[in-house]
Amino acid sequence: MLTAKQHELIRFIQQRLEETGVSPSFEEMKDALDLKSKSGVHRLISALEERGFIRRLPNRARALEVIRQPEDSVPPPRGAAVGLDAANDAVASVSRKMREAPEPANDVIEIPLHGRIAAGAPIEALEGQKSLPVPAALLGPGEHYALEVSGDSMIEAGIFDGDFALVKRTDTARDGEIVVALVRGEEATLKYLHKDGGSVRLDPANAAYEPQVYRPEEVQVQGRLAGLLRRYH
């Protein structure tokens, strides 16, 4: 069962696709649903995506596809036929709309920016009230936050000092994933997670650093790495 806002959003997306051949921007969806921020739109889209109503098309910042409609949508009569001329007109209309469609916009959403995180020896992870604008195409479903990377222990994984780690909030991770790990409730670090017998090993991606080994109760997963942002000066 969809919420009223989810129902309203999927109908708006479908209507815009039928009219223009292009899914609406996050700003347009925010205005259409009378929401206060685009982060609310992102949460609605993530929920619809997780439930199989829509999907994001890869490699495009503004591309949504409606996979199925809510149950109360009225399908066309079974066995209904469409004349050849009408079918040709429909195909021509869709082709024309695709040709005339504007280039996809780079929709941006704001996610919390929680200070700095070590890619070296653990340092304190600072909680803050700042936010970071992120292209929506970089984020999948779920809740995300950002941390600024400090240090060079993950450079062989392509993660450099000053990068912004985009993190999916979760308290579980598979062996070998890059995670934000809170150590002893005080310090946070970005490392590969490995469960080694009765211990937890946090591995760097830099031969100059040694793995860090802790008891399982000393390490708490706070998120999995979902992407990176890098600024060039």
Rank of each mutant, 00 (worst) to 15 (best):
H114L: 05
R116T: 02
S46H: 02
A61G: 05
N59F: 11
E103R: 15
P102N: 08
S131L: 04
A101K: 13
E100D: 13
V41W: 04
S95C: 10
A80Y: 08
L113M: 13
D107H: 01
A137E: 14
G52M: 12
K97F: 00
P102Q: 11
E71Y: 06
E49W: 03
L48H: 11
P122V: 11
L35C: 07
F53W: 06
R56Y: 09
G40K: 01
L126T: 15
A92Q: 12
P76H: 09
I67T: 07
S93P: 02
R99I: 08
A105R: 15
L139C: 02
A101Q: 09
L33Y: 03
R56M: 06
P58I: 06
G140F: 02
L64T: 00
Q69K: 11
E49C: 03
S95K: 06
A121E: 15
D107E: 13
D31S: 03
D34T: 14
R55M: 08
A101M: 07
A81D: 13
A80L: 12
I54S: 05
I111C: 06
G120F: 06
G83H: 10
L84Y: 15
S131K: 14
Q129E: 11
K36V: 12
A92G: 04
M98Y: 14
A105W: 05
N59A: 15
A92I: 07
L33D: 04
E49H: 05
P75K: 04
R62Y: 00
P76L: 07
A61K: 07
V94R: 15
H42P: 00
G128H: 10
E124F: 01
L57C: 04
I111P: 02
V41R: 01
D34Y: 10
E49S: 10
A81G: 08
A119F: 07
R116V: 02
A63K: 03
P135R: 04
L35V: 11
D89G: 09
S37V: 13
N88T: 06
R60W: 01
N88W: 08
E50F: 09
A101H: 05
R60D: 13
E27H: 00
K30I: 06
N88E: 10
L126N: 13
L113P: 02
P104A: 07
S93Q: 14
E65Q: 13
A125P: 02
M29C: 12
K130R: 15
L126F: 06
V41T: 04
L44N: 05
A47F: 00
D107P: 00
